[in-house]
C-alpha cells in the first residue's frame, strides 16, 4: 500500500512528464507547419522539372541517356532509406524499418546495398549483415537541398558506374497528420512519363494541334539540356522525399506526444482520486481514534 507521500510524489513526476510531452507536441506542431510549407514551396519546381523531363525525353533520339536506360539483368540494388534522427515519434521509424525489411525480403536474390539517411536507420542496420554504402544523419531542422543533391549524386555515380542496376528510395509519404505511409519509389533508372501524365500530355497535344506547332529551340542542344536536367530531376525527387519524410516525422511525433499528454492527464486524475481517498480514510481513522479516546475517559 503506497503511502500518501508516495502518491504525491508520483503525481508530481507524472505532471512533469506531461509538461515535457506537451512542449514537444507544440514544437512538433510548429515544425510540421514549416515542413508542410516546404513541401508546398518545392512543388512548383518539382512539377516544372517533371514537365521538362517528360517533354525532353520524348524528343531525344537514338540511345537513351545513361540515367534512363534500364538494365536487362538487375542484380545489384541500391536502396536509400530515410528515417529520423531522434525517437519519440510513435511508430514512424518502426514503420520505415519494417518497410525496409520487407523490401529486403522481397529482393533476396539480388545483392542490396543500403544508403541510410537518419540516425535511427543507421543504428538499426549497424549490427546487421548488410552492405551499407553511405550513411549520414538526417540533420536537425529543415532538409537541405545540398544534402539531397550530394546523396543523389553518389547514387547516380554508382548507377552509371555499373555498380548498381536499380536504385530505390524508401520514404514516408505524408498524407495527413495521422496518416503516414512508407513508400518505395524507384529513383533510377529514371522511368519515362507516368501513365496519367502521358495521357494528359496527349490531350494537351491535341489542343495544340489546331495551331501550327512551332519547334522549340534547345540551347545548346537537346542532349546537353537533357543530360544536365536529369541529375537535377533525381535530386529534386530525393529532396522531395526528404521533405515528406521530415513532415511525416513531425506529424507522427505530434500525434504520439498528444496521446502521451492525454495518458498523463488521465493518470494524474486517477492518482489524485486515490490520493484523496487515502487522505479521507486517514482523517476518518484519526477522528475515530479521538472519539474512542474521549469515550474511554468518561
Amino acid at each position: 500500500m503506497p503511502s500518501l507521500r508516495d502518491i504525491k510524489r508520483r503525481i508530481k513526476s507524472v505532471k512533469n512528464t506531461r509538461q515535457i510531452t506537451k512542449a514537444m507536441k507544440m514544437v512538433s506542431a510548429a515544425k510540421l507547419k514549416k515542413a508542410q510549407d516546404d513541401i508546398n514551396a518545392a512543388r512548383p519546381y518539382a512539377e516544372k522539372m517533371l514537365d521538362f523531363v517528360n517533354s525532353l525525353a520524348s524528343k531525344t533520339t537514338g540511345t537513351p541517356h545513361p540515367l534512363m536506360s534500364s538494365r536487362a539483368e538487375v542484380k545489384n540494388l541500391g536502396v536509400l532509406l530515410l528515417t529520423s534522427d531522434r525517437g519519440l515519434c510513435g511508430g514512424f521509424n518502426t514503420a520505415m524499418l519494417r518497410a525496409a525489411e520487407s523490401f529486403l525480403r522481397e529482393h533476396r536474390e539480388a545483392k542490396i546495398s543500403l544508403g541510410l539517411i537518419g540516425k535511427r536507420g543507421m543504428e538499426y542496420f549497424k549490427r546487421r549483415e548488410i552492405t551499407v554504402i553511405n550513411s549520414r544523419p538526417a540533420g536537425s531542422g529543415r532538409p537541405d537541398y545540398a544534402a539531397a543533391a550530394a546523396s543523389a549524386e553518389e547514387m547516380m555515380r554508382l548507377f552509371t558506374g555499373g555498380e548498381l542496376d536499380e536504385v530505390y528510395v524508401i520514404y514516408s509519404e505524408f498524407k495527413s497528420v495521422i496518416n503516414q505511409k512508407p513508400v518505395v519509389h524507384k529513383l533510377l533508372p529514371i522511368t519515362p512519363p507516368a501513365p496519367e501524365k502521358a495521357a494528359e500530355g496527349e490531350g494537351a497535344a491535341k489542343d495544340l494541334s489546331a495551331q501550327p506547332e512551332i519547334p522549340v529551340i534547345y540551347e545548346p542542344s537537346v542532349d546537353a539540356v537533357l543530360s544536365g536536367l536529369l541529375p537535377k530531376y533525381v535530386e529534386i525527387q530525393l529532396f522531395r522525399a526528404m521533405l515528406e519524410s521530415s513532415a511525416s516525422e513531425h506529424g507522427a511525433r505530434m500525434t504520439s506526444m498528444d496521446s502521451a499528454s492525454k495518458n498523463a492527464s488521465e493518470m494524474i486524475g486517477s492518482l489524485t482520486l486515490k490520493y484523496n481517498r487515502l487522505r479521507q480514510a486517514a482523517i476518518t481513522k484519526e477522528l475515530m481514534e479521538i472519539i474512542g479516546g474521549a469515550e474511554a475517559l468518561k
Partner: peptide, 16 residues
C-alpha cells in the same frame, strides 16, 4: 550561349 533577352511572343526556347 551568352546573355539573351526575352519579349512577349518569343519563340519557344529551352536553355541552360
Amino acid at each position: 550561349l551568352g546573355e539573351f533577352g526575352v519579349l512577349a511572343g518569343h519563340t519557344p526556347l529551352v536553355t541552360i
